[in-house]
Design a protein around this nucleic acid. Sequence first.
DNA 1: AATGCGGGGAT
DNA 2: ATCCCAGCATT
Length: 321
Amino acid sequence: MGVVGVDLGKGYSLGGEGKQLAHGRDATLPVVVAPVHPWLGDVLLDWYGAQARDLPWRRTRDPYRILVSEIMLQQTQASRAAVAFAEFTSRFPTVRTLAGASVAEVLTAWRGLGYNRRAVGLHKAARSIVEEHAGVVPQNLTALRALPGVGDYTARAVLAFAYGQDVGPVDTNVARVLSRAVAGRALNRREAQSLADALVPEGQGHAWSSALMDLGARHCTARRPACDSCPVLRTCAWQRSGGEDPAGATAVRARSPSPFAGSDRYHRGRLVDALRAGPVAAADLATAARVTDRVKAAALAQRLVADGLAEWDAGSLRLPT
DNA sequence: AATGCGGGGAT
DNA sequence: ATCCCAGCATT
């Protein structure tokens, strides 16, 4: 077994003495895994250079736009976020325009993306950036993590994709690729993060993590991986082991499959979408939410208010002004 | 560790 | 039908 950082091939920056990494006291913790093939980095970066997905947030390094894209991409496929990203950044081109908008305007622009609380959080984050950070998206992990809706992944994504820092954001793609292709076994959160940070070739934070995500989206997929055409097949730890999928059901996954139609989430979504068209009188809530029970409709409305997604005004429910 | 939170795409 | 998706906050 080897320790990450022994010899990762040309372009790698990690020294055995423990480079100062950006994510706190776990930074120098060695992750013990199978040896990393020295060619992995070059092969993956070469493949990325030739096969990169053309996604709109890859055409900018504007930290505000990167932040918007990363919030949109939380639990949302890149292909769908791409459409909304163009419209949203056209409507709100700068962090100050977003901060100056109403929650209602932002929620309306969020239509179709789901997880509407993300829009409220992004709006609050924009105001925080303007008021507490002089309009500049923070450039360090701690300040980014303090923004609403920004967690371990999103904070590092901003650092890597906007500021070019050598940190490794771990999303579902990266976690799966690292478990399979590099470690050859399931990794817990801390291990995956440590490994992801350690693997970033010096000065290539943007391209490297983009490449890992593309590999996860195009070849190393969750459902049916396309190993035959995978660019890193020859260095893949899972391939060499020939064993069970290291990213299998017991790994990171924690989904609870419940039917969506008829769920509270469905009706919440219907109600918010109705509010996008304008205020809804209390008597019309049930119809707007597509429920028959008025008590249930009132409960849904109450929760929307509690979540900052709606407010009462003269007997009507509306998006927050 | 579990749960709530949307909606659409892929198989 | 079911799984999955560039996750986060709360309990």
